[in-house]
Write a protein that binds this DNA or RNA. Structure first.
Lengths: 144, 144
DNA sequence: TTAAATCATTAGACGAATACAACTACCCGA
DNA sequence: TCGGGTAGTTGTATTCGTCTAATGATTTAA
């Protein structure tokens, strides 16, 4: 069997379509950037912090950036009153960054925009939607 | 029926998982950026040009950027020997950008990296993969 | 034929993001 | 207590992409 048997071809086609479905909706990115008045990267940082307080080190790792830039991004979010730094009782070298109330509502606004499924998804036949839901959950779960 | 009935909740969950599946694999972006030695934006431009020759105006529109930057990006790709400008017989103001042979193989290399489905997709039960393929095709088709 | 509009280009200012080097405060093991 | 390693910060340099303004060449409409 070649490297392009039926399964592979099907998977490639499905993958291409999935990419188009998700990436095609980059208007959402623009929407959220405009709604919050900050870069998408900072929105991502804010959403991460809103999910659970983190140290700057953890934030940098999870955003795939370096420590100095994490400091700068948190500075910016802090100056907007969206997050705050508190001491880490377990390690006085580090600081814990958590959202303020304002920050939480901003993060929720972003999540609402980004989490709204496209109309075509809502328009799927209920059976298809249920199956897609199950498969997507499995794929997301497998750490892919 | 509220705004959060069962269908909506299912669609939102499926959408969130689809986003994670596609966006989680941003390693692919890094892979392709490293493989081609240029920014992802330029890779995107190259792939667009490889698909079909375009004027700089069209390229700018489709990359959602402005004309001056399209000029700059094409300058860069041209200096790498990946694309070339030719006169547009239909309108002597504009120029047509098309790929060279080198550019085509580079674009294909990028497409190969980006088009490779994640392992979890290939590992799906054949029935599930077939269903996913059908649904994804429908979603991608509807212009979402 | 004249005037307005369009295409590609050049230039400069700007913010966003990455990468490095260096510094302090602090933790921890020898 | 001493020394190496880590967390956060500061600073600098560089690249990338957006935005605005302006220009010469050309098309199109009046």
């Amino acid at each position: 069997m070649s490297t392009h048997d039926t399964t592979t071809a099907t998977a490639e086609r499905a993958w291409a379509n999935l990419r188009e479905i998700v990436l095609g909706g980059n208007e959402r990115r623009k929407d959220v950037v405009e709604a919050l008045g900050m870069s998408f990267f900072r929105v991502k940082a804010l959403r991460r912090i809103a999910r659970e307080p983190v140290t700057l080190r953890e934030l940098a790792d999870q955003l795939l950036t370096d420590r100095p830039y994490a400091t700068l991004v948190v500075d910016d979010l802090e100056s907007r009153g969206l997050v705050e730094r508190t001491a880490n009782p377990a390690d006085r070298r580090s600081k814990i960054v958590s959202v303020t109330e304002t920050g939480r509502s901003a993060a929720e606004r972003a999540n609402r925009i980004l989490g709204t499924p496209p109309a075509a998804l809502l328009a799927l036949p209920p059976d298809d939607l249920a199956v897609l839901d199950r498969i997507a959950a499995r794929l997301a779960d497998e750490g892919l």
